[in-house]
């Protein structure tokens, strides 16, 4: 679910287009946009406080038809207001719930997405580390 939530809508859309033998996807709830109040902690470790809201889209779908062993239900919550984004994520979540298809989804969809996200994180981290600085004070430190 974490990998699906982090994947962008175009990534999921491409993965869905590449997925053959698509099951019937029936909307149970949504996709619908709403808000989640983001909380922080006072001083980072103290009482909780309400920082501000974030837009979130959720979808719950029922998958049935040809490739499915049995009907499954998939759910997704993603940041933003792109309804399709949540729909694709929910559809893959439903596929993951199918015992026969789970392995294939993990190998063909989740693993490449995860590798992409790791790659992106490593690049960002390397860029950030390039700005690591060693300050030294001009005053004598061991006077």
């Amino acid at each position: 679910m974490r990998v699906l939530a982090h994947a962008s809508r175009p990534q999921l859309e491409r993965a869905w287009a590449a997925w053959d033998a698509k099951p019937e996807v029936e909307a149970i709830r949504g996709p619908e946009a709403g808000l989640v109040m983001v909380r922080g902690r006072v001083g980072a470790g103290g009482d909780r406080f309400n920082l501000g809201e974030a837009t979130v889209t959720r979808a719950t779908v029922r998958l049935h038809g040809v490739p499915m062993t049995a009907d499954t239900v998939g759910s997704a919550y993603v940041l933003g207001t792109d309804l399709e984004h949540a729909w694709f994520a929910a559809a893959f979540d439903g596929l993951l719930a199918d015992e026969q298809l789970r392995e294939r989804v993990l190998n063909d969809v989740i693993a490449p997405l995860e590798r992409g996200q790791e790659h992106y994180d490593n690049d960002r981290r390397a860029e950030a580390r390039s700005t690591k600085v060693d300050f030294f004070t001009v005053a004598r430190e061991h006077a």
């Binding site: 946009a33 709403g34 808000l35 989640v36 109040m37 983001v38 909380r39 920082l51």
Partner: peptide, 10 residues
């Protein structure tokens, strides 16, 4: 927009 709920503290 409807409020879905509160996040875990970041």
């Amino acid at each position: 927009l409807p409020r879905f709920g509160y996040s875990e503290p970041i």
